[in-house]
Design a protein around this nucleic acid. Structure first.
Lengths: 245, 245
DNA sequence: CGAACTTTTGACAAGCATCAACACGTGTGG
DNA sequence: CCACACGTGTTGATGCTTGTCAAAAGTTCG
């Protein structure tokens, strides 16, 4: 099922955050042959060491990338929201160095890697947009290294919650500092380098300190200033604003 | 002091790892106006929150990027070797989200960010090379997240040592599994999310288990297989081989 | 309605941090 | 040229944050 133009719109929206496309570029991007699929939670997009020839864009829902260690423990290295390209790195290099898994029921668009490479080569503006989005990813990675490397459990989780609030706000999924967090406590643990049990106790502490409220999967930040302070959260690294030049 | 052609050669060498340049691209790159400087250990290339208009390439020596937290603790998020662009992200976005500091006496080349942006726009092949190098950086970041997030002290340090061996080998600074590691134990601690004291004890353990030998700043890996096993080291994430397509 | 997952609670253990101090080498200024 | 400060590496004693093990209560979904 090849799809109509507006399907890739969420991806385009994100790419145009840092580079403004010309009409021709926009058209060309939307004309990419994309295969649309609905995927259920838990499904794998790519597995570690897979050969990858398809790049998958997330149109709606959530996904995450993670690595598995020999002892069975996992580390989530990034969480993807709608508009993200899930496995750009894998598609460009042809092989996956981590797993990409769907977190909630999601809609994705698969694009042949060769197509993406072609359009990037033909249209410098598009390549630039892809590059800048990769640079932003790198900036977020750095912050995550800092998060798991040097913050205590309380700050780590607070930081994760702050980051989510800002990222979801941009795509309209967070209003009044309230959003539905699709992650289980086990997944939060795997993202922060903690155990689920400790995550549970730490979240309870954040609650009883009046920083957040939670109800099922919805998180409401009650004290934004307090939460950012305990997190040591400075928003710049997300590069959500416009870019120079 | 504007410099002669072969100065930017180490940078070119790295960029051509994943993309082969045409003669014209190569010429154009080497013709970039670059300002060459010798810098002493400890000097800052950029500081967190600086406005950045210059991109700095490392021609020889070592450097590292790190973040500082409110409580004064630091996290080193990457270590740079000769051939690396130190602050590509900062140059592209115009503002730095981390510090870049020189580790050993080094020679660097400064290129105006605007020049780099121009050449990238004009020459898709060069932009592609820059993009791919950013993708590789991201892959390394992911591995570091996993390192500090899910490995114990012993594995973390072993992993760092393995990574260094492979990266230095590529640029000819590691022979027979022996290299001079420019980092102090304090810096190793800041890179692995540990304390210097624990790093010290852990390195002693690695030594007494016959995995490595150290003498001043030189590290000799005595048991590569054993070290990679305790590290859980799988080399693919460094993407040192050729790239598909 | 029951199975599988998620959240929660308690008791206990351990890895790593903290504090304090000393040894060693290096560079620098008096 | 020596004294001294400073950074680095090393050692010991102690404590806290976080992990581990075990199990119950709540939730989701086929």
């Amino acid at each position: 099922m090849f799809e109509s133009k507006q399907d890739l719109a969420p991806l385009l929206l994100k790419l145009e955050k840092h580079v403004s496309f010309g009409v021709a570029d926009r058209e060309a991007f939307l004309r990419l042959a994309a295969f649309r699929k609905t995927i259920s939670a838990g499904a794998y997009v790519t597995r570690e060491e897979d050969r990858v020839q398809v790049c998958t864009g997330l149109l709606s829902g959530f996904a995450y990338s993670h690595k598995t260690l020999r002892d069975g423990s996992r580390q989530i290295v990034s969480v993807h929201v709608s508009g993200d390209l899930l496995n750009l790195q894998d598609a460009m290099f042809g092989t996956a160095s981590h797993n990409v898994q769907i977190m909630t029921p999601a809609v994705v668009a698969s694009i042949q890697a060769s197509e993406l490479i072609r359009i990037a080569a033909e249209r410098p503006v598009i390549q630039r947009a892809l590059w800048l989005s990769t640079l932003v990813d790198g900036s977020v990675f750095s912050e995550w290294i800092t998060n798991v490397g040097r913050r205590d459990a309380r700050s780590r989780i607070a930081h994760l919650l702050c980051e989510f609030a800002m990222r979801l706000k941009v795509i309209g999924l967070c209003n009044d500092l309230t959003y539905t967090l699709p992650m289980t406590q086990v997944q939060i643990a795997d993202a922060t380098g903690l155990t689920a049990i400790h995550v549970n106790r730490t979240i309870q502490a954040l609650r009883s300190d009046g920083l957040i409220r939670t109800d099922k999967r919805t998180v409401a930040i009650e004290d934004w200033v307090g939460l950012t302070r305990t997190a040591g959260f400075k928003v710049d690294y997300l590069h959500q604003g416009a870019v120079a030049a």
